[in-house]
Amino acid sequence: MRRREITSSLFWMFIGLILTIWSLTYPLGSLAQPGSGFLPLGLGILLLIFSAVLLMRALRQTAPTEEKVRMLPARWVNLALTVIVLVVAVFLFEKVGYLLIFFAIALVLPLLAGQITFRRSLIFAVLSAVGVYVIFVWLLKQPLPTGFLER
């Protein structure tokens, strides 16, 4: 608990610091005529102050408080892989096309979640890709990139 509080407050302090420094590169104006850096600077300073208070509070905690601490996920590898699959899909989306990308997402994600056979996942992926085509491309006429499948 204590460690997580320290980590999160340090993260916000870092963000506050970046925001404060970055805001100084924009015109600050005056109190009667605030410039574009005025509000972000104020936000950055407040973020620094509040995260410092959070940090101090965390440091003052001696023993771990309530034991309802949710530990880091045991399934974090699967979670990380899910995010990686999505990021890769983003970068390949326009080159490969929506049909193959959605097929791949619908095939891989259930397998990552577990408790499903490859065959069921494959059927699900085919149905999802066809469903997206019928609903979004055929019915709603959404312009989606077809990638190298384009004739």
Binding site: I105, L109, V132
Partner: peptide
């Protein structure tokens, strides 16, 4: 089952 529902949610969000 949620393991079939969540890829659909992800696909819809993506779209």
């Amino acid at each position: 089952p949620y393991n079939l529902l969540f890829p659909l949610i992800v696909l819809f969000c993506f779209l």
